[in-house]
Amino acid sequence: MLSATDLTLGYGSHILCRHLTLDIQRGECILLCGPNGSGKSTLLRTLAALEDPLEGRMERDAEILLVPTGIPKVKGFSLREFLMTGCYRESRWSGRLSREWQEKTDRALSQLGLSGLAEKDLSTLSDGEFQKGCMATALVRDPDMLLLDEPTAFLDVGNRVSLVRILQQLSQEGKTVLFSSHDLADCLPVCTRVLGLDGKGRFLDSGPDASLPRRKAIAKDCFGGVDF
C-alpha cells in the first residue's frame, strides 16, 4: 500500500530523521509517537505527498489523505459546507456537489455520528465534534489510507476515547489508519503497530501486529526510556 525506503526528513540543513524505511499494509492501525519537534508532522506530510523527503524513495499504490492538525473553526460555515470544501476537485466551480457526492457527504457524517450536527455552524461545535468533522472531510472521499496529525489534541477524556475507538473501527473495516498522538495511554491499547521518532534522528518501528508490551517498549524508547 505504501512503502518508503531510506528516507531523510528535514528542512534544508536541519535533519529530523535519517534512514527511515517503512512498509505499510492494508488495515493496519498505526500510532506515531515522539517528542515535540521530532518530525511527526513532517513524516505524515511526506507520506501524504504534501512534502518531498530530502532523500529516499516513496511508493504509493493507494489513495492516501491527511487530516492536518490545527484546522481553524471558521465561523460562517456549517459542518456540511465544511465537508463540501474538502471535495475541492469533485465539486463544480461554484463549490456545489453532484447528488452522488452529496450522498457521500451524508454517509461520512452518519458514519461518525454527526448527521444531527450537519447544519450547525462550525464555531458552535465542541472541539471533539469538530475533530470528528475534520475526519469526516477525509472519509467523504473514501481513501484507502487515512493519516491524522494529532487528532486527540485538546480533547477531554470522553472525546479522546470516542475518537480513538472510531479510528480502531475504521481499521477493522479495512481502512489503514496512521495517526500521531501524545495520548499514549488511550492509543497504545487500540493500535496494532507503533512508529516512533526519538528527536535525535532515530526512527523506531514495532512492526505489524506487535504485542502490547512491544508497542509500549517502542513508545518508551522514543521518550528516552521515561515510564508512563
Binding site: R45, L66, G70, V74, T85, Y88, R89, W93, G95, A138
Partner: peptide, 18 residues
C-alpha cells in the same frame, strides 16, 4: 470562490484536499 473558501481552513487542509 471555492478556492477562497478552502484556504480559510489552512494551507495544509487545502493541499490535502487537492
Amino acid at each position: 470562490s471555492k478556492g477562497l473558501d478552502i484556504i480559510l481552513f489552512g494551507d495544509d487542509y487545502a493541499r490535502a484536499s487537492g
